[in-house]
C-alpha cells in the first residue's frame, strides 16, 4: 500500500463514520425524515471493496447502503440532501436513505430482490462486453430470502461477472445469526459452485487484498465470486432499537475499523484528515442550511 492510498482509505473510512454519526445525531434532533440504517463498524467493507472498482462497474446495495454509496460515488452532498428529504438530493427526496441511484449505483430497501437485479445487470454487461463487474452487497439476514439462491444459481449457470458480498454482521435486525441461519453460511454460495472467500477482518487493507483478486478473476471471465465478510455492526440497526448486551458491543470496539486503520498513519496526519473531513461535512451541512427554504 502506498502512503497515498492509505491516506485515501483513511479519509474515506473516517468520513463514512463521521457522516453516519452525524445522521444519528440529526435523527435525534428530528432533522431526518423516516428511518436510516447506518453502517458504523462495517466501513472497512465499503472502502476495501469499492477500491477495486473502476469506471463502468455496477453496485447494488441494500438498506444499509450509505457507506457503499459514499465509497463508490463520493457524493456526500447528494446523499445527505436526499436523507434530509431535499430537492438537491440524489433522488430529489423521493428515494431517501435506502433508495439511491447514481453512476451505476443502485440501492433498494427490499431484502433479496437486488441480488436478482445485480445478476441481471451482470448479464447485460456481459452481453454488452463492457468488462464491468457488478457487485451486490447483502447481509446475513438476507440469506433468509429465497430469491438470493435463485439468483446465485443463475449467476453460476450463466457464468456472469458478479461479485456477491455477504456482510455477516451477526444480526438480522435484532435476531442473532444462531436464530435465523441454519448450516454454514459459506456453504450456500459454494453449493452453486461459486468460489467463496471468507474473511474475518475489519482492516480495509485486508479486505481490499482479499477482494482484489476476486475482481480480477471475474473480469477474466471466470464467472461469479462470493466474498463473505465476518464483521460487526457497532451501531444500532436503525436508531434507538439496540437491545444487544453493551458488553458484547464494547468488546467489539477493539476491532473498530476506523480505530484499526488510524494506527497506520502518523497521529498528526490522521488528525489532519479527520479535521478535513469535519470541515467537508460542515460545509455540506452549511450549504444545505443556506439553501433550505430558498
Amino acid at each position: 500500500m502506498s502512503q497515498e492510498q492509505t491516506e485515501q482509505f483513511f479519509r474515506k473510512l473516517s468520513f463514512i463514520r463521521l457522516f453516519e454519526s452525524h445522521l444519528l445525531e440529526q435523527f435525534s434532533w428530528g432533522k431526518l425524515s423516516g428511518t436510516t440504517h447506518t453502517c458504523i463498524g462495517q466501513e472497512a467493507n465499503a472502502v476495501g471493496i469499492t477500491a477495486s472498482m473502476g469506471r463502468g462497474d455496477v453496485v447494488f446495495s441494500n438498506h444499509r447502503c450509505h457507506g457503499h454509496y459514499l465509497a463508490f460515488t463520493d457524493d456526500a452532498f447528494g446523499l445527505l440532501a436526499e436523507i434530509m428529504g431535499r430537492e438537491e438530493g440524489v433522488c430529489r427526496g423521493w428515494g431517501g436513505s435506502q433508495h439511491l441511484c447514481r453512476d451505476g449505483f443502485y440501492s433498494n430497501g427490499i431484502q433479496g430482490g437486488i441480488v436478482a437485479n445485480a445478476v441481471g445487470a451482470a448479464l447485460a454487461e456481459k452481453h454488452a462486453e463492457t468488462g464491468a463487474v457488478t457487485t451486490v452487497f447483502l447481509g446475513d439476514g438476507t440469506l433468509g430470502e429465497g430469491l438470493v439462491y435463485e439468483s446465485m444459481n443463475l449467476a453460476a449457470l450463466w457464468s456472469l461477472p458478479v461479485l456477491f458480498v455477504i456482510e455477516h454482521n451477526g444480526y438480522a435486525q435484532s435476531t442473532p445469526t444462531r436464530l435465523q441461519l441454519a448450516g454454514e453460511l459459506e456453504a450456500r454460495p459454494r453449493a452453486f459452485g461459486i468460489p467463496t472467500l471468507s474473511l474475518a477482518s475489519n482492516d480495509a487493507d485486508a479486505v481490499h487484498a482479499a477482494v482484489a483478486p476476486l475482481f480480477e478473476q471475474i473480469r477474466a471471465g471466470e464467472g461469479p465470486r462470493c466474498f463473505v465478510s465476518h464483521t460487526y455492526r457497532l451501531g444500532p440497526h436503525s436508531k434507538g432499537d439496540d437491545h444487544r448486551d453493551p458488553a458484547e458491543i464494547e468488546a467489539r470496539r477493539t476491532f473498530d475499523p476506523i480505530r484499526l486503520y488510524r494506527t497506520k498513519l502518523p497521529e498528526t496526519r490522521a488528525t489532519e484528515i479527520e479535521q478535513a473531513n469535519q470541515n467537508r461535512l460542515a460545509e455540506i451541512v452549511n450549504r444545505l442550511a443556506e439553501s433550505e427554504g430558498s
Binding site: 455496477v58 447494488f60 443502485y106 430482490g113 441480488v115 436478482a116 437485479n117 445485480a118 445478476v119 441481471g120 445487470a121 451482470a122 448479464l123 447485460a124 454487461e125 452481453h127 454488452a128 457488478t134 429465497g146 430469491l147 435463485e150 439468483s151 444459481n153 443463475l154 449457470l157 450463466w158
Partner: peptide
C-alpha cells in the same frame, strides 16, 4: 442462441434478472 435464456423454475429471478438487465440498457 446468445439472446434466448432458458431458466430454472425461478419466476422471481426471471423478472429480477430482467429488471437488472433493463437497468443496464437491455430490453428483456
Amino acid at each position: 442462441p446468445q439472446r434466448v435464456h432458458t431458466t430454472p423454475i425461478s419466476e422471481a429471478a426471471i423478472v429480477g434478472v430482467a429488471t437488472g438487465a433493463a437497468l443496464r440498457g437491455m430490453r428483456p
